[in-house]
Structures are given as C-alpha cells and as structure tokens.
Computed example of a mutant assay.
Amino acid sequence: MNPWRLRLLVQLDTLGTVRAVAQAARLSPSSVSQQLAVLESETRTQLLERTGRRVRLTSAGLILARRARAILDHMDSVETELRGFGAEPAGLVRLGAFQSAIHTVAVPAVTRLARTYPHLDVELLQLEPHESVPALRVGDADVIITTTDVDDLPLGPDLDLVPLAGDRIVLVLPPDHPTAGRGPADLAAYADEPWAFDMPQSYMANLALRLCRQARFEPRVVCRFSNYMLGLQHVEAGLSIMLLPSLAVDGRHRVTTRDLATPVSRTITAAIRRGAPPRAAVRVVLDALRGLPETVAGGSPGE
C-alpha cells in the first residue's frame, strides 16, 4: 500500500468529502478519486461507497483509515531513527500555533531547540484552533498549541493533551481612558464605546460577542483585524477598546488592561495524535513547550 494514498484515505475520514481532501492536498477532486480507486485495487477491498455525487467510507474503509493513522506515524518514527540512528532528536516537526502563542510560546521554544538540537527542524505554522485541530488529525501538523475552550472542537479521545498554561481575558483600553488604572471592569459600563473585534467566527470574535451580550448590550464594532497587533495599534490611538487574551497584549504598545469583574480565562494546551509513542523529535518539542516561563503562563498585565 502506498503511504501517500493511505494519507488521502485518512484525510477523507477526517474531512468528509473528496473536495475537501483535494483542497488540503492541493490536488483536483478527480486526482483524489483516482488515487483512492488505486488504493482499492491495491487492497482488493471496497473502501468507498458512492451515492450520487457523494462518497463515503465503507466499514472496511473506516477500519483501514483508522489503522493507517498509526501506520503513518510509525513510518515517520522509523524514518527519523534511520536518519539519526537514534543518537539525538532529528527530522522535521510541524508545530501549529494560534497567533498570540507564536511570539510568546512557540518562537522561544523553537529558539531553544535550535541551539540544543542542530539536526531538528521545526516548521512553525500559524493555525487558529479551528484550523489546527483538523490539521493535526490529518497529519498536516505533528504538534499544535491550541485552547481547550473551543466548544465545537472536541479534542479527544484520539488526541493526547498536555496543559501548558492559563490565560485570562482582559479589557484593553487606551492609556488615557477615564477608567484606566481602576479595578476589575464591568463590561456593561462600556456599552457605548467603539469596539475592535477579531474576524467573524474566530475564537476571540465569538467570545467577545458572547461576553458583551451577557452584559446586555450589542457592541458597536468599528473595525475588525485578523492581527492582534493591528488591534492594539487601533486601541493605542484611542479609536476603540477590545477584549483580548492577556497573552496577546504586547508590552510594546501603550495600552492599559483591566481584568473582568466576572473572570474569564482559557487553557492553553499542546496536543499530539494518540497512537504509537511519539518520536523523539516530537517529545523534545513538547518538553520545550512545557518549559514555559511563568511570565508567559500568567500573562502580561499590559499596564
């Protein structure tokens, strides 16, 4: 059996449609269908059922897809051992992380690893939680930094989780705002303020909207940014206020933060696929992430 075709089958099990697999693999849908048909010939087993234009896995296809995950992980491990004869962690590890964790968690970990393991290559990918969990499951990432607080992204039981830190949600204000420097903030007092939001349907956009509505108002959103740094610049200029994880509040911006009167926090977690024991290269990346300094784990006050 060809490992590449097995990976396509695994992606079909995870993503659900040939079109989605084609987009992930950067192939045409017809090419994906042809390769899956070849895999059926190789295994001499019907792996797919076709109903109209849709394709779904047979019972045999489901079994093979789920066994294939362990097979592919084991092949990666063997390849790495052959390259380095097990002398030290080596090879490629793809690390996915959401935006605010990249410069505070991922980059420091990768920097330490580069000094210690010269034959280890860590490819850093910016992936928000709704992107990183599927990427991990289909094998496009080996380790991800995500949050366990995204309700529509169940993280188990096919994944192993390593808690890294807690990260509180804070209200970010211009430095000369009349309420700067006070104690915990009641969001209802900010109902008439202009708000900066993340992009629609992102984790922080959904969370901020929910918190504002719990405070019984609909926020007046004057701008949306996919980059937290642009949002912080907007707040710094006195044009808006926003809700952010404390991890995202870069101290280089002249803003102030207030904790919320009703505290809200998220749990930052590393995740890997469950199955065969993780190869040495993956283990050292996890160890580096667990070495998170307390100043990162606690979040920056931003004041």
Rank of each mutant, 00 (worst) to 15 (best):
Q233F: 10
V55A: 11
L15T: 05
A191S: 14
A270N: 06
P277Q: 13
T269F: 05
Y203N: 06
A188T: 06
R115V: 10
C212S: 05
G183K: 03
P3C: 08
L82G: 04
L127G: 11
D186E: 11
Q233A: 15
I169C: 14
V249T: 05
T179F: 08
V38L: 13
E303G: 15
A248D: 03
A68Q: 00
A248Y: 01
S31Q: 07
I71L: 14
D259H: 10
T51M: 12
L260S: 08
P29T: 03
A270S: 11
L124G: 14
D176M: 12
I241E: 06
R168I: 14
R56H: 11
R224A: 12
D186F: 04
G84H: 04
F98G: 09
V150S: 12
P154D: 07
C223Y: 02
R168P: 14
L239R: 15
A281Y: 00
M75Q: 14
R210S: 15
L15Q: 07
G231A: 11
V55C: 05
E131G: 11
V107Y: 08
L72N: 07
L286H: 02
H130D: 12
T257E: 02
S33P: 00
A261W: 00
V122Q: 02
A87G: 08
Y117K: 07
A60G: 08
D167R: 01
P263W: 01
W195D: 07
P178M: 06
G183L: 01
P278E: 10
L127T: 07
S30K: 00
L9D: 04
D140S: 10
P154K: 03
S226D: 11
S246N: 03
T80S: 15
W195E: 08
T80L: 09
H119Y: 06
D259K: 06
P175Y: 15
A70N: 08
F85A: 13
G139A: 02
L260T: 03
Y228F: 13
V162H: 14
L207P: 01
R50E: 02
A261K: 01
P175H: 15
R210I: 05
L207N: 06
M199H: 09
T256E: 12
Q126E: 12
R168N: 14
T17W: 01
L187N: 03
H74S: 15
D76R: 11
D167E: 11
A97M: 02
M75W: 01
T179N: 11
P134F: 08
E218Q: 07
R66A: 10
A189Q: 07
P200I: 01
V285L: 11
R274A: 15
T257S: 10
T116M: 07
P293Q: 09
R290S: 14
P3N: 13
V143E: 02
L230Q: 12
P293N: 07
